[in-house]
Structures are given as structure tokens and as C-alpha cells.
Write a protein that binds this DNA or RNA. Structure first.
Lengths: 204, 204
DNA sequence: TTGCAATATTGCACTGAGTGCGATTAGCCT
DNA sequence: AGGCTAATCGCACTCAGTGCAATATTGCAA
């Protein structure tokens, strides 16, 4: 082992490349043929791996739409950690949620747009998205509780839930009848405006 | 057609009975063998139905855990409809959500307890539960928007989301480390207390 | 560089959910 | 009673996902 061993081994790099290839191939196929009409075997073939091997990269087909979902949680955690000494929980939480929305998504947001569309149309994808969201919410609540012990574990969870719920509620309406429901940037802006208003009672 | 034709035909009654039999059989089997280990074929056989016919009663295996989910929504809608002339949105919403929690669940809450346990342990069940919850939330938001036009469609949705989110957030914590996470009555009481506190800023 | 251990890849066979279709049955209505 | 409609069911099929065992690839140390 020399003085500078690569932090990521060849193995790891190769694995990461294959993973990306899978996501890219899936995006391509989903866009062209639709989600249900695309089989895992097709995706694997497009990424030049065996069908069986696919499941050592993703546990399920839906998971292709949500790579790196932990990045968003980490962004929120950082935002909470960076609070000022006089900040109150609601303000901190609001900044954390903004951080979640802002982390510029994958390459040019093409995957984000696809995800948005499939969340609206494919039940199994929506279900998975909601599960991921709940896990993220729980994790954020944990950080909030650590930052403000006086809230209590449950108080922090309820507060976080209220904020995330407000965002999600606005999102629901937006996604179902907005002309540009597929443009992540536009969606983000609209949601931000709507939630700022809905959460007003907490900031006064 | 005589003066008094049965409101529900024989056909409908039989169908309802079979449906209940399926739910009962499923509950029994899920409790005894676990969710994953129970096949649809077993459930169908226990209810004396062809396997193929099962899918004309329930679209998917998970749906066995959520019969009559629309009852809860209707209870909430009724609560909103029964508002007083001076009631403000938050108070009305809170009553509506209480109505949702109160509708005494299916027979002795045995199914409710099972559902609670499976939501915690089986991902696909949790996903379905979240989807149903979101649909219900959206529907309640619609009623709220109709009752308070000044809120606007999106404002109503955000507010509803915030309230439901607070409840759900508290529920998350409760379900993961409460000793009696399987007792629906206890859970309901605890959630009510937690949310009352978390939603306080709206009532002042 | 070579050889060994660990890990990744793959094929194969299998289970179980869910669907489409066509034949049969059973309830409904006149 | 008899035709009409809707429910039931068996059959064959697709596809997601898993367990297992064989093989190939990479990491590491001598």
C-alpha cells in the first residue's frame, strides 16, 4: 500500500459507474416506454449486466427513481447544525426544509422531472416516495430534538411533521393541476410561496 | 318490482359477506403465519373462493388491511359540514381529525391492531397506508376549501397537511418505541395529547 | 509477479402477485 | 320459465424478486 491509496478502490469506482449506468438506462427506458412497460431485465441489459445482478444494486425497481435520497437528509441536518444561538425551532426547521428542496438535483433535473411524473401516475412509485419522505422526516425530527431538547422527542416529531405536511399538502394541489407540474424548478418556487403563507402562525 | 324491493339485493349481500370473510380469513392467517408467509391463494381458499376471484374483491393483497377507508373520510367531511358560523379553520380541522380517529374501528379493533403492527413491519403495507392517508388528506382539504373559500385551494391543502403531518409525526415516534404500540386506544389517546400541544400556535 | 482470499457476477430454478381470456354458473327481471 | 347480465373460476402467462451454487474478478501479501 503506497503513501496515497485511492480513497475509493477500483472495485468501488466500477460499482459506482455501473450504478449510474443503471439509473441512466432506466430513465431513458422509462421515458420512452413508460414505467410499467419497462422490465428489470431490459434495464439490466441496457446497462450490460445480468438480470440477477441488478438486485445487488437496487432492492427494487422503484428504487431506481430515488438514488442518493440520503443527500437531502444530510443537507437538512447541516442546516439545523448551523443554527444561530437565538434561533427558534420553527425558523430553523424552515431553513432545513429549504435546504432539502434546494440541493440541485441530479444531472439537469431530468431524473427529477421523470420522478415527479411517475410519482403522480404510478402507485407503487408514489408509495415508495412517501416512505422515503417519512423516513427523512423522522430523521430530521431526531436532529431537531437534539438541537432543542426542550421540545421533547415527540414534540419535535410533531412540529417537523406539521412543516413537512404543509409542504406536501401544497405540493399535492400543485402537482395535480399545474400546467408545469413537470418542471422541478417551478414546482419548488410555488411550494415555497404556499408554505410560507400556511406556516405564518408559527412566526409571530 | 314490488313496492318494497330490498335496498340491497341478494347478490350484494352475498358479495358483502364474502368480502368480510376474506378480511376475517386474512386477519386470522396474518396473525398466525405473518403477512409475507401468507399467500393470496391461502386466503382465498380459507374464504372458499377461487384464487382468481380474490382479485375481483381486492385489487391487491395489502388492501385487505384497509377495508372501508372511505368511512373515515366521510366522518371528517361530516365534522366540517357541522361547523358553527363563528368557527375558525384550525378548530374545525382539529374536530375533523378527531372524528377520523374516533370512528370505532372494525370489530373490537382486532384488525386495527393487526394493521398497526403490519404498518410498522411490512414496507409494502406502510406504503399503501401512506397512500391512503394522502388521498384522505387531499379529500379533507377539498371539503375545508369549500367551507372556507377565503383559504384558497392551496392554502386549505397546506393547512390540512400541517395538521395531518403533526398527527403523523407524533404517531411515528409513538409507534416505534411505545410499549403498547399495538393498542389502538392507547395510541389514539397519546397522539391526541401530543398534537394538541404541537398545534398550539394556531390557537391563540 | 504470483497465488490466495474475498467479493462480485451470473445462470438457473423457483415462488408468488397480478392479468387476460374464455367458459360456466348464478342471480335478476320480465 | 327463460333470457340477460354479472360473478366465478380455471388456465396460461408475465414479471418482480430470492436462494443457491458455480465462476470470474479484484485486493492484498509474499
Amino acid at each position: 500500500m503506497g503513501a496515497y491509496t485511492a480513497v475509493v478502490s477500483l472495485r468501488d469506482r466500477k460499482r459506482a459507474r455501473t450504478r449510474s449506468a443503471l439509473v441512466a438506462a432506466a430513465a431513458e427506458l422509462f421515458e420512452r416506454q413508460g414505467y410499467e412497460a419497462t422490465t428489470v431485465a431490459q434495464i439490466a441489459a441496457a446497462a450490460e449486466i445480468g438480470t440477477r445482478t441488478f438486485f445487488s444494486y437496487f432492492a427494487a425497481k422503484e428504487d431506481l427513481l430515488f438514488p442518493e435520497s440520503d443527500l437531502r437528509v444530510r443537507a437538512a441536518a447541516d442546516a439545523i447544525a448551523a443554527r444561530g444561538p437565538d434561533d427558534q425551532p420553527p425558523a430553523v426547521l424552515l431553513r432545513a426544509l429549504r435546504a432539502v428542496g434546494e440541493d440541485s438535483d441530479d444531472l439537469s433535473g431530468r431524473l427529477a422531472a421523470l420522478r415527479l411524473k411517475l410519482i403522480r401516475t404510478v402507485p407503487v412509485v408514489r408509495g415508495r416516495a412517501l416512505q422515503i419522505q417519512m423516513d427523512a422526516q423522522r430523521e430530521i425530527a431526531r436532529h431537531l430534538a437534539a438541537a432543542f431538547p426542550e421540545l421533547g422527542e415527540m414534540g419535535a416529531a410533531a412540529l417537523t411533521g406539521a412543516f413537512v405536511g404543509a409542504v406536501t399538502g401544497a405540493l399535492q394541489v400543485l402537482l395535480e393541476d399545474s400546467p408545469d407540474a413537470d418542471d422541478p424548478a417551478a414546482v419548488q418556487r410555488a411550494v415555497q410561496a404556499a408554505t410560507d403563507e400556511a406556516l405564518a402562525p408559527w412566526f409571530r
